[in-house]
């Protein structure tokens, strides 16, 4: 049996979901014979391969770069998993949605800055008008809420997916916590 290819993607989030993934500890080793991690902020691979079996997405879609990335990943992944509240609900990154982007940038880079008061413009991703959960941009196959989902939850989800089953998330996780 060939190994399943796994990718993890980090959009607008705190990386807590990735930390939780690592919290699986020895269970990572237990599952490792079943998958190959082909793309992830945790490894060196810089190019997303054409065929990904499972993509775990952490974070919300907040910038034009995020949007580009998620569309690319969607086109290459067989199963796309929204991992954690930022990906599932927008969560904390989306709290900026009640404010216009300009006002936000002004507040952060000018009002609250003591040095070099200017809004950065060059070579930076442009913020979208609204932060959106992943499923508002592309189709999502599995939703795993939680901030972050516990290592136990991620382990169960992965195990089920690698075994070719659809995990019953409702029993495993919830918004928040």
């Amino acid at each position: 049996m060939s190994k399943a290819t796994l990718a993890t993607i980090w959009l607008d989030g705190c990386s807590g979901c990735h930390m939780s993934l690592l919290d699986m500890d020895e269970r990572l080793i237990e599952l490792s014979p079943q998958f190959e991690l082909v793309y992830s902020p945790l490894v060196d691979a810089k190019v997303l391969p054409r065929n990904v079996d499972v993509a775990l997405v952490e974070g919300s879609v907040s910038s034009d770069e995020d949007e580009h990335k998620i569309r690319l990943i969607r086109s290459r992944a067989r199963i796309l998993v929204s991992l954690g509240d930022c990906a599932v609900t927008g969560n904390v990154p989306a709290m900026r949605n009640s404010f216009p982007v300009d006002a936000l940038l002004h507040r952060v880079y000018i009002e609250n800055a003591t040095l070099q008061q200017q809004v950065p413009t060059e070579r930076l991703p442009v913020l979208l008008k609204r932060v959106r959960p992943v499923h508002e941009v592309v189709t999502v196959d599995v939703f795993v809420p939680g901030c972050p989902p516990s290592a136990d939850t991620i382990y169960s989800v992965l195990k089920e997916l690698l075994a070719g089953r659809v995990p019953d998330i409702a029993a495993l996780s919830r918004f928040g916590i």
């Binding site: 609900t89 927008g90 009640s98 959960p133 499923h135």
Partner: peptide
Amino acid sequence: VTHVRFPYRYPR
């Protein structure tokens, strides 16, 4: 309910 399919309204 594992996700919300409707657009969030984000009122201030």
